[in-house]
Amino acid sequence: MDSANATKTSSMSGLRPFGVAPILPAQREKISCSVPGFSDLEPLDLIGKYVHFLDRSLITPVTPDPQAYDAKVVAVHLGSLEDGIETSLLLKKCDDAEALNYVNVSDLTVQSLLR
């Protein structure tokens, strides 16, 4: 009889032990945004969307201005600021379908939502 129910999921499998709080960040980082009507955006809301970004991570002495480009947000990496890990987006640039790059949220400004 026990072997007949061996693959059945326990009704208690999704519960945490009493007194154990879930580990969630107190406040997630937001992406600065210059789109009218939005002040900041949740990174998770951008997954799968095409966005026109202004990227300050590409600033060098040769290119002192932030670069703008269109990219699809493929994934979000939620970091822990307490541990020095920033939240970042995995971006696929529209002009280079092969390249995927993580960019810290603090380096990005959303200029417009494309689709």
Rank of each mutant, 00 (worst) to 15 (best):
Y69A: 09
A21W: 08
A71Y: 11
E42A: 07
A68Q: 11
D65W: 07
L91Q: 13
V76D: 15
G84E: 02
V105K: 07
N5D: 10
H77N: 10
S39D: 06
S32Q: 10
T9V: 10
D107Q: 15
L44I: 11
I59M: 01
G19W: 02
E29S: 14
C33H: 08
P36L: 06
Y102K: 08
P64V: 03
L24E: 14
L91G: 08
P61A: 08
T109L: 07
L89C: 08
P43D: 13
E98W: 06
S88W: 15
S39Q: 04
E82C: 01
V20P: 02
G48T: 04
V35N: 04
I59C: 01
G48N: 05
R16W: 13
V35T: 05
A6M: 02
L78K: 04
G48P: 03
V76K: 13
A99Y: 07
L81W: 02
V51F: 12
G37K: 13
I31D: 04
V20R: 11
P25R: 02
L24Y: 12
H77A: 07
I47V: 15
D83S: 15
C94F: 10
L100W: 09
T9Q: 10
S3E: 02
T9S: 09
L44G: 07
L100H: 13
D65Y: 10
A99R: 07
P17H: 13
K72D: 01
S88T: 15
R56L: 01
S13D: 07
G19A: 02
I85S: 05
P25F: 00
Q27K: 14
K30F: 12
D95P: 04
T60D: 15
I47H: 15
A21D: 11
K72F: 01
P43G: 13
G19T: 01
Y69D: 03
S80P: 04
R16P: 01
H77G: 07
I85N: 04
K30D: 12
V110D: 06
F38W: 03
R16G: 11
R115F: 00
V73M: 00
D45M: 00
L44T: 12
M1V: 03
P61R: 10
C94A: 11
L89F: 09
